[in-house]
Design a protein around this nucleic acid. Structure first.
Lengths: 357, 357
DNA sequence: CTGAAAGCGCTTACAG
DNA sequence: CTGAAAGCGCTTACAG
């Protein structure tokens, strides 16, 4: 294949000049740049990323780590990140942990990321202490989205899970419900640790604020999936008198719960109200009330925050979203406050006053 | 950071030997290999992918190109592919075209993929002639999943879209429907070209086989999305007497259609039956009848077919799925028959006999 | 089974 | 603004 020497020869310049011209460095005369570009085009020259990376010391690649790409939130985040990265000239290496311990180890514990990427975007993946250590040792910039653990020096973008859950629960309380169940995350799933704990906290806080003592028998733990929600709701019903409302920790769980209720002959919302968190793109189809969270915005913002310090041209300014502390060159060990994006209550058909009213 | 020389020094061997030992080449004595591995571990050595790729001439990276990662089929395929690639020691570069012409050009028209990846998996992306030319010029191995166009030398994995559509339509006919509408792909969306044409062909074939002449007023074109299905169904209803059944070209469209029907005060299936294609993971929640297609299997199989000739250890044999013609080293220009995976009818609550019955 | 040496194709000081 | 030369960190014949 054609390489930089071929272009240099055709353009009548050195390879150093070709390299500079092609990368748009300012230290090239307009005439020379034109000649180089013409030569490159004529030869259909494409630089060898491996050679460029080895010589230049940067990979122009970002690792994006998600628990499961098939879940709404993660797919949406990846889509947003992908667009931003590619428009900024970066490649996206996808790591879908998928609950596989081996994959997790390879990505999070070994140095495999080290000379492979320039930065990391870690989505909803709380870390164990040794993983934090390993990741820190990598000495790479990174951003965390909706993660539970902080990696020192890595900014974090997320929503306020406690507040979102409080709003959801309060919506049910406002409708007159008092027997409000909660479908929460899997206690064994350390990967989803913080998010579900925060959401339960918000649920309980709203109940207490309304003078209601949280009832453990109305609190079921399961997985953050459709099936998880389905099983959790089934168990809830098996426990005895059904609640009049269910707040599920995410929309996918809420959807699974709706199926379980229907299978049990209960109508939503006449018999049981259901609300989730996300605003999954099928929430509207199902008439599911929910707390909408901005997934695309979280992805975009994370990518921006990450690439900005790497000296990448970004389309729009994002100052409005950033806490005042950032923007300068904060030392890596200054704990950065998370960037919190807003959520909002979306009322659809799955929530209504309880029968008794 | 520590490099291969450091390991070589510590182990008391040459860098060539370190390289061989670390990659598991057979030409290294057991004792030497042990020493090298110990040294590498002690120094926490990780090879530099850039250097290795430049010297070795292979990137151990595969480009995966999808229209939209957030759609069920594509997310599921990527998840399957990702697992297989990473277990085989390959990196996955994600390209989400997202309908952006610019992105498409960069990926499909320029040589940007050239020295960046060893192979390509192209999902549901029919190509324009110049793109086929450009991709062929890359001289890379590739596999196509559910694509409309063939790239010479690239195997293709897919379902039989005509048959799937025929089965869906026949299910409605068997229930007694005769006014069966079809929601098809966007005619302007050349990216979804073949799939929706094939599905329409199956729909019409089934009608004709039942002695029914396809009625153009019952055939609406829209996009392969929830919204697309929603708008299409709304238009269908605006055209006059509603059909008694709708066959949507994919589940997401079917779901959107269900919402439109509900919004119009029509019940599913009492007033209108609805069936799709996919078996989306929310189809069950919505009680949607559908033609299930194996997304995970298509992804896995494509990855296997791709990596196998590259000399990668694969877990299970896949001979059962492969056409007899493959398996040897067929010349690249021999047209390969597509690998067709089976679909199956899944009857749920969204389809029933028409009212009149 | 192992090593010395060339080479992969760029980028980067350095000098002019 | 431009070029000569070193160097990025590996792998691969080649020779032994």
């Amino acid at each position: 294949m054609t390489k930089i020497d071929d272009v240099a020869r055709l353009a009548g310049v050195s390879t150093a000049t070709v390299s500079r011209a092609l990368r748009g460095l300012p230290t090239v005369s307009a005439a020379t740049r034109r000649r180089v570009l013409a030569a490159a085009e004529q030869l259909e020259y494409a630089v060898s990323p491996s050679a460029s990376r080895l010589a230049g010391g940067k990979t122009s690649t970002v690792a994006v780590v998600v628990p499961r790409i098939t879940r709404w939130f993660f797919g949406t985040v990846v889509e947003a990140v992908e667009e931003f990265l590619h428009e900024s000239g970066y490649d996206l290496l996808l790591y879908n942990l998928g609950g596989r311990e081996q994959t997790r180890q390879r990505v999070l514990r070994t140095g495999s990321l080290h000379k492979r990427v320039d930065a990391v975007i870690l989505v909803a993946t709380p870390l164990r202490p040794p993983e934090v250590t390993a990741l820190t040792a990598l000495d790479l910039p990174g951003v965390t989205i909706s993660s539970g653990t902080d990696v020192p020096g890595w900014p974090c973008v997320r929503i306020d899970d406690v507040a979102a859950a409080r709003t959801a629960t309060r919506h049910l309380l406002d409708l007159g419900h008092t027997r409000i169940a909660h479908i929460s995350g899997d206690p064994d799933d350390e990967l989803a640790f913080t998010t579900h704990l925060d959401r339960r906290r918000g649920y309980q806080a709203a109940l207490r604020a309304a003078g209601i003592r949280p009832d453990p028998s109305l609190d079921v733990e399961s997985q953050f999936t459709i099936d998880g929600g389905n099983r959790a709701a089934a168990e809830l019903l098996a426990r005895g008198e059904p609640p009049t409302a269910i707040f599920a920790a995410c929309d996918e769980m809420a959807m699974g719960a709706m199926t379980a209720l229907r299978d049990a002959g209960l109508r939503v919302p006449q018999d049981v109200s259901v609300i989730g968190i996300d605003d999954h793109d099928l929430a509207k189809v199902l008439g599911l009330s929910t707390i909408a969270q901005p997934a695309t915005e979280q992805g975009l913002l994370a990518a921006r925050i990450l690439l900005d310090p790497l000296g990448v041209r970004t389309a729009e300014p994002y100052a409005g979203h950033l806490p005042a502390q950032r923007g300068g060159d904060a030392p890596g060990d200054t704990p950065m406050p998370p960037v919190i994006l807003p959520t909002r209550l979306v009322v659809r058909e799955s929530t209504a006053p309880p029968r008794a009213h």
